[in-house]
């Protein structure tokens, strides 16, 4: 059991990281599901999140269709066995409904929705194992799944988190730092425009704290984005090799 006073001592975090270290592994694999149009699995620290995309497809229920653009349907959910604590309840709860809503807004921004009027794009994010920072892991994975599905986007949204433990601003909080620490700032960044697409926060932060957190997250978003791109490159190298094998 980790206690609050163990979280950050002598410049080191309880798991040995420095304040600016991301968790390891940070591994993204694209195209992990056969049936979905696009999919990705992310392992970020002890988190494991599966994301999949269907669409653009016919809108259901029909009256929700928008003649000017595709509508996005995002579903973030945690499996009842995903946490270290007791068995959770199956299905959406108030937290996951709120996260699904703000995740939807992220994809509405990134996807070129005007190209697909009267359609719907479903983005499903299933948290299989959770260890803090699941929403940003899920959105990072879903971005790759969307690209894997061939859906045009302005850029790949990158999820990051930071937060304060005592006086220290730490990057990429794990479950203990999130639960026992003093704040949590989940953020989604669109690197190409430098815009913030998701910003939720709890804790008590000064303007300087918020800017320190953003500085940390913007700086490290590049690394996560490179992992996303690598996942997509690996995916298409595999497809290419397969096609060449079949032609030989």
């Amino acid at each position: 059991m980790v206690e609050k006073e163990d979280l950050f001592k002598n410049g080191k975090r309880w798991d040995g990281r420095t304040p600016t270290d991301l968790r390891t592994p940070l591994a993204i694999t694209a195209g992990v599901l056969k049936r979905a149009q696009g999919s990705a699995m992310i392992e970020w620290g002890k988190n494991k999140v599966l994301a999949a995309v269907y669409g653009p497809r016919e809108v259901f229920p029909k009256h929700l269709a928008d003649p000017a653009k595709a509508i996005i349907n995002a579903r973030y959910i945690m499996a009842p066995f995903s946490g270290l604590d007791d068995h959770g309840r199956s299905g959406p709860n108030r937290r996951s409904i709120e996260i699904s809503k703000v995740a939807k807004h992220v994809f509405e921004n990134a996807i070129l929705v005007e190209q697909f009027p009267k359609t719907m794009i479903d983005v499903y994010m299933e948290v299989l194992q959770s260890d803090g920072g699941t929403r940003v892991s899920a959105i990072t994975a879903a971005s790759v799944a969307l690209a894997d599905a061939g859906i045009p986007m302005r850029d790949l949204p990158v999820g990051m988190s930071a937060g304060k433990v005592g006086d220290a601003m730490l990057l990429d909080l794990d479950k203990y730092e999130d639960n026992l620490g003093d704040s949590d700032i989940p953020t989604v960044i669109l690197p190409r425009t430098g815009e913030i697409l998701l910003s939720q926060m709890d804790g008590m932060l000064s303007k300087k704290d918020v800017n320190d957190a953003f500085d940390l997250m913007f700086e490290n978003a590049k690394f996560v984005r490179e992992k996303q791109l690598q996942a997509l490159r690996d995916r298409y190298e595999k497809v290419e090799a397969q096609v060449q094998g079949e032609n030989a």
Partner: peptide, 8 residues
């Protein structure tokens, strides 16, 4: 102090 944020 900022105690909550929500972008929507």
């Amino acid at each position: 102090l900022i105690c909550a944020t929500q972008k929507s």
